[in-house]
Design a protein around this nucleic acid. Sequence first.
DNA 1: GTTCGAGTTCACATGCTAGC
DNA 2: GCTAGCATGTGAACTCGAAC
Length: 314
Amino acid sequence: MYNNIPELLRKEAVQRLFATNTFNNSWIIWKPEIQRILGDNFDENALLNLGDFLTQIFRTTGTSGRGQGELSGGGAAWESLICWYINLCTVGSRIVAVKKMSLVPEPIRDAITVNYGNFGCNTESDITILIFPNLPEYTQDINTLNIQNNQNQELPVLNRNGKLNLNALNFLASRDFQQYEIGIIQCKTNWNDNAQIPMLWDMIYSAGGFRGRNITIGKNGYSIQNIHQFTYSFVTVPSNQNQNYSSNQVAVKRVTNLSGGNYWGQPTEQHVAKSIKEIFTNNFNNGTSGIRNGIRNAIPKFNPNQVLSYFDII
DNA sequence: GTTCGAGTTCACATGCTAGC
DNA sequence: GCTAGCATGTGAACTCGAAC
């Protein structure tokens, strides 16, 4: 059940989070706090509701004043925590969150590239959500798969290191491109200064570019216009001090109409921001037959030496 | 062809000031 | 009171050449 292509990609994505010093150092503090919030014998609801506490968890690693050391790592740590949480809640589904662009299949990377004249801009994707098609190649055990390219040559699912062969993934993404769904998540720890960034990128993606100004989206024949669904979301802590947000504030208005919505790591506040736990039903519902069922089945596998122990939650 | 290390580039958030 | 914009040092990713 956890030996198919989406699960192999999820494992690689999460393991790469733990490979960075920023996340590893934070995790030493976050893990006991997460375990304290979950309590003993937690269930699927407790795990899903972690989304209401991610701000609280993130702030346990905050320091007073403004240390340059924390400054750089802060944003990366928040992205990593969101990526870890989304993968935790979508385990067993066809939804995978990837922080490293190098793990995103090339056709998907091409599709979300914004071209400014001859310059292929950075796609401004902090986290890329892949919702794989509901096809046997993405749901069956890899040992039962026989993937062949257009020249009838077999493409192994694993490379010689035992990890997911990205060439096979690139081929499948190209072949089934129109059945993929993509979600881009823009993560920012502070809200006020950075709300313009997701607002403007969402405008460009929603407009499909501005051909009169030679601004286009996609390359190599891949475009988000041709995939099944595309969403752009904003997820913030927020880290701004002593700030009471209301629906009339500019920072709130700027992200209100994003195609994927705006979220934060605390309980939903009407007309301001939703809890990150709502993103699954809002944007990624097609990738799962029930988010709670998936988590419930996975809980025993989070134990040490089990197949999902890489989440390091127990 | 592979691995390693040095150098380079980019993205990151807060506290503050200026302007309205 | 609200908003925009700036300066700042560090971590991670990336590039490239040297060594094997």
